[in-house]
């Protein structure tokens, strides 16, 4: 079965004055997948996503989001997408339930407001004013408002910035749940572990271009890169880089006759790969071809 395409981008460009923010981006995001867009600030990531959301006009290229050109957004199209923007500093006097119920009225076929509040884990706070919620709880309200219209496609812009680790984990479960329900999710984030935990595929944008794209576990040759095997002997830490870590571990096991003290086998993390990708413009071009 061929997956349908939710988002198709060809040769997207956008400049602000003399600054070329986006210099020819191609993207294909399949319906139902979680797609993470990574990249340093000012690399064209936000501009690209805002063009997809219909919040910004492009200069050139072709863009289709749910088969509609987001440069000419219609109400019908907006009712099929959900947008969770970066921080909204609204200190609202409305309660969570009032907000969610009110936003439900904008959509032709909304979810049940109480179910959505339950789903984002705010059932106990439904009667609380948004002003009195913690940062993480407010973010959950943002997500509730983003999904109340039963969107086929959800944009999440840096959804967990400022979260504590536990809140982040709970948030990831929420997003995974939405994905399981069939919602296509486009996520921007600065947290590489977040991209790795949630995304089926990631794209790294730097200097207005996509410098790498693919499965986060194999991105940039990550799976085939040399592993590092390290252990302790007589209080000294030893480490070797090897393309055959299993053999190294077997040898070590023989040498120690059983347990190797403080044994660790590591591959480059997504963060290592990411930092290498955004390092120099010249090195970037070839990495994309690895996938």
């Amino acid at each position: 079965m061929t997956a349908t395409t939710a988002i198709k981008v060809r040769g997207l460009t956008k400049s602000y004055g003399d600054v070329q923010a986006v210099r020819g981006i191609d993207l294909d995001i399949r319906a139902g997948e979680v797609f993470a867009v990574l990249g340093p600030n000012g690399a064209g990531k936000s501009t690209t996503v805002e063009i997809l959301e219909g919040h910004r006009k492009r200069d050139g290229g072709e863009v289709s989001v749910l088969s509609v050109d987001p440069g000419r957004p219609t109400r019908e199209w907006r009712s099929r997408i959900g947008v969770v923007l970066q921080t909204i500093e609204e200190a609202g006097d409305a309660t969570v339930r009032e907000m969610v119920r009110h936003f439900a009225r904008y959509y032709p076929d909304p979810r049940d407001p109480d179910e959505v509040i339950e789903q984002v884990g705010l059932a106990e706070k439904a009667g609380t004013r948004v002003r009195e919620l913690s940062g993480g709880q407010r973010r959950r309200v943002d997500v509730a408002l983003g999904i109340i219209g039963r969107p086929e496609l959800l944009f999440l812009d840096e959804p967990t910035t400022g979260f504590d680790p536990e809140a982040r984990r709970r948030f990831w479960e929420l997003i995974s749940g939405l994905s399981d329900d069939g919602t296509t999710i486009v996520l921007t984030t600065h947290y590489l572990d977040e991209a790795e935990a949630l995304a089926d595929r990631v794209a790294v944008i730097a200097w207005g271009r996509i410098v790498a794209e693919g499965d986060p576990h194999t991105l940039g040759g990550r799976a085939t890169a040399k592993a590092s095997v390290s252990w302790s002997q007589d209080g000294v830490r030893h480490s070797v880089e090897t393309g055959t870590p299993s053999r190294t571990v077997a040898e070590l096991a023989r040498r120690f006759d059983g347990e190797v003290p403080e044994l660790a086998v590591t591959r480059p993390t997504l963060e290592d790969i990411y930092l290498k990708l955004i390092e120099t413009p010249a090195a970037a071009g070839q990495e994309a071809g690895d996938e």
Partner: peptide
């Protein structure tokens, strides 16, 4: 205040006319 807080941008992203 609503514009500065991003409330208007959020509304513009919904099918609210």
């Amino acid at each position: 205040v609503e514009r500065d807080a991003g409330v208007l941008k959020r509304l513009a992203g919904t099918p609210m006319p």
